[in-house]
Every structure is written in C-alpha cells, then in structure tokens.
Design a binder for these strands. Structure first.
Lengths: 173, 173
DNA sequence: CGGTCTCTTGACGGAGTTCAAAGCTAGTGG
DNA sequence: CCACTAGCTTTGAACTCCGTCAAGAGACCG
C-alpha cells in the first residue's frame, strides 16, 4: 500500500552505528529494508549475549521498552550498512487507525515471534553445541554467510572457541 | 463481563489428566481458574522438556498448533486437580466480534508472552544452574512451593541431581 | 504394610569454558 | 600499492561444571 509509506520514517545506519542504546527508551519498531542488525544484552561479567538478528524483511525492536516506555536493557546496532523504516508508537496507532486490516498483520507478527521464541527455547536447553549450530544453519542458511562466527556463537550461547571446533568437526565429514 | 461467559466451556481436569496429547491438534486456549498445568515436549532420547507452567489467572495453549491447525509436538497435562475455561478458535472469533475491546487484551497477552520468552532466553543461555534457579524462585515464588523439584529442573534445562545439589548449596548460606 | 514416586548423595566421565598464543584477514593510511 | 594494525579465527592444554549411573532414604498411597 502506497498510503502506508508516509507513516514511516526512513533511516540509514552505517555499520557499527546504533539504533538503540542500553538504558534508553526504545522509540521505534524497525523494518529492515537492507542490511543486518542485531539486538544484544550485556551481563554482569560484561559478556555480550545476542538476542536476535534481523535482515531484509524482518522486524526488530525491544518490545518491552517500546510498549512500556521504560528504559531498555538491550542494545541494537547495525552489522552491515543498513536501511530501515521506523515506526514510532504514535505512528503505529495512526497507521492502524487508517488501515485496520493491518491489525491482523501485526498480530501475526507477534504470534510468529512467540512461536519462534518457544521453538528456540526448546532447541537451546540441554541441546549439545553441534546440534544447536546445525539447527541454526538449517534455519537461517543465508545469515550464516553474512555473520562472523563469534556472533553466531554469542547467539547460540557458546564460546567462539567451541563453535570453531564444532565447525571443524562438521566439515571433516 | 458477564456477557463473555457463555463463549467459554468449563472443564475440570484431575491430576495427571491431559488437555492435549502430542500429535493431536490443539483445539483450545485455556484460562486456568484453579490448579496448575504444564506444557512439555519429548525429545529424541525420550527426555521431557517443560516449556511452560500455568497457574490461576494464566493462559495456556500451544500457539503453533492452535493457530495453524497442525498437529502439536507438545503435551499439556494437569499437575494438580484443575479448573479451566476453554476457548476454541471459533469461540474466540465470536467473542472478539462481540466485544472488540478484547482485541487489545489478547494482543497484550501475546506481547507479554513474547517479552517473557525473550527474558527467559536471555536467562537460559550460558547461565550457570544456580543463577537460573535463583532467577526462577524470584520470578515465580508461589510456583516453587507447589512444584516437585524434578519439574523445575526440567523447566530450567538441568538434571534433578544438579538442582538438588544447587539447592543444598543455597540453603547452606 | 509393600510399591511407586521423589529426593539425595557419591563417584566418574565428558562436553564446554578459560587462558594463552599464534595464524589469518581485511581495512587504513602513508 | 604495500605495510601495518586491529579484529577474527584457530589450536592447544588445563580445568570445571554438569550429566550419567548407581544406590539408598524418605514420603505418600492403595
């Protein structure tokens, strides 16, 4: 729908630039037109834990902060030069007021997000590293080529060293 | 709203009775009036993995199967004698048609579910067993008293033996 | 009572982490 | 266009947390 376009603001992000900094409020839901982003937390030991990746056609936000208006514990930055469409909460309301059919679309996004999160939980707990990695590359074959190894490791909850060894095992078969 | 009541069907479940069996389609979203339920999967080695608990005031379903009409990989059974309000998909549509304000309520449920799932992921990956347990008892203090140890262990993705030792550590401080 | 379910405790083994060092790769500036 | 640096990946060795296996102790119920 052309009529939707003016509800979004267009934004370009260079590699390593941030869309959201920890302790700030997440003002936008982002739709990725081009590039790759990630969201991640930093734990008490200073370790990064990647929560989510997003590429072309994906949506990304910190739902908690976006919906409650409270400070986010999450950072979002660009892993490649990226182009985004940003939707603020007021834009979102206006958009849904104008095009009620989108209610359904946004609900589907939520449902699929929840289903995916549950699926990922099941695959994370108690699954050996190799299986987690195999599951990752079969779920996101395109992402594997674009992401550095240590970021996939962070997403899977293993160390880069372990993932390096796992990968070595796999190609030798 | 009194007017909502007749959209739900009332169901009682004795301890160990099932609401949903693996390989069947999940027909209902359940609201727990009384009791405790759990949803769980069984992996290739025959091990149970608890995905979710639900007590008084919580909603429980297998969203994937419920929304798509496809067979579920998940089981749902009662851990105590329980009372439920069941909502089928057609009931849900009728209800939302009658009381459009509930759209918002159901969207909030989804949002909170997704936020909780993300939170849990962050706390699961790469976190030592003790921290996971401490986080669990501070998040669900009421549940801890009602659940057997080995089920909490299954939810956290550790063995009962490990959780037993963790608990011993904690009380000795 | 006896039987099943639950929790505890011990000994052992293995997958994964940590620490450290060295090899690669890509980007930058002279 | 090359040299250099910083970030990424690989590899090795020691250690640690957790899982596995096995046995025993309570607790609950018919």
């Amino acid at each position: 729908m052309e009529s939707c376009k003016h509800f979004f603001s267009h934004k370009k992000l260079k590699r390593h630039q941030y869309l959201l900094h920890q302790d700030n409020v997440c003002k936008y839901t982002a739709f990725v037109v081009r590039g790759v982003l990630r969201s991640y937390t930093i734990d008490d030991e200073g370790e990064e834990h990647i929560v989510q990746f997003a590429t072309e056609g994906w949506w990304l936000t910190n739902l908690y902060s976006y919906k409650t208006g409270r400070p986010s514990q999450i950072n979002i930055d660009a892993l490649e030069d990226s182009e985004l469409l940003l939707l603020s909460r007021s834009d979102e309301e206006a958009l849904l007021g104008n095009v009620p059919k989108l209610e359904r679309y946004f609900r589907l996004l939520l449902e699929n997000g929840l289903i995916a999160a549950e699926q990922r939980l099941i695959y994370s707990l108690g699954t050996p590293a190799e299986e987690k990695y195999l599951n990752f590359i079969s779920t996101y074959p395109d992402l594997v080529k674009r992401l550095p190894l240590h970021m996939i490791a962070s997403y899977l909850g293993v160390t880069p060293e372990t993932l390096s060894r796992v990968r070595k095992q796999i190609v030798g078969r």
